[in-house]
Amino acid sequence: MAREVHGMVEKRGSSLWLTHVFMIAGVFVIFFPIWLAFVASTVTQEAIIRPPMPVWPGDQFLINYKNALFSGVNVPVATMLLNSLIMAVGIAVGKIVISLLSAFAIVYFRFPGRNLFFWLIFLTLMLPVEVRIVPTYEVVAGFGMLNSYSGLIFPLIASATATFLFRQFFLTIPDELAEAARVDGASPMRFFWDIVVPMSRTNVAALFVILFIYGWNQYLWPLLITTDPEMNTIVMGIKQMFPSGDDFAHWPTIMATSILAMIPPVIVVISMQKLFVRGLVDSEK
């Protein structure tokens, strides 16, 4: 009897390998589209347009990736990668900086209009950029920020998630620290730099991971405001590589670009897995 209970609860015995089989099947299904994309990025166009395409990589890896990176279709993929990097880092850093500052103000000061500002920021939680695209586009166009990095970055910084996260965290910082700083005559900004910012390091890092991926994966907004191919980001640029007519798309280049578009955020997620999971759980609370 004891042995049997053991088997059922502690997950041993014959069902164990079955579990592994199912897990591996699951991983395989999840991976399959990416594997195919990788294979397609290593073979010639001829190998693809005469289906079925091979399931093992070919010998065109260097040629296809070199072609994508330095020639591309409308614009070299290297340019799009750089644009994406600037946009993603800009959004992540921008959001973190303005949120740290405003959360500090809301938590550590009593000033006129504090509640009003708090609620105004809170409201921005509710409205994704997708919902207000036309008027936001007009604002950005009015500032002459079409086809510019600031046009790509600033409208997407206007959101309150990070502010809330930092507010929650600041509220857990012991009051004694602020009291000690005040008694010692340290200025608020001194307290901010020497105590609050260093204590928020882990939160900042976790948030950076989430925001970097969020920024990197933006699609609709760059699609609207970057009409100049030189300013395209890689995620929105892939679609622009498809021919408009009935021609065959150049799949090896497109698939090499897709793989290149995945690599930076995937590296961030895997190398910072702990921070990523933490950031995900934090930012959804």
């Binding site: 900086v97 303005i98 949120s99 500052l101 405003s102 500090f104 103000a105 809301i106 550590y108 000061f109 009593r110 000033f111 006129p112 209009g113 504090r114 500002f117 105004l120 920021i121 409201l123 921005t124 409205l127 207000r132 008027p135 936001t136 007009e138 604002v139 950005v140 600033f154 409208p155 910084i157 206007a158 959101s159 309150a160 502010t163 009051d175 602020a178 009291e179 005040r182 608020p188 900004m189 307290f191």
Partner: peptide, 28 residues
């Protein structure tokens, strides 16, 4: 425990309020 003053907090909160106003509340 809070700090005194109202100029500084307004300055600190200004960037977020400004960006929200221009790219969020106005378009909405």
């Amino acid at each position: 425990v809070t700090f005194k003053g109202w100029m500084l907090p307004l300055l600190l909160i200004a960037p977020q309020v400004f960006i929200s106003a221009v790219f969020f509340f106005y378009p909405a």
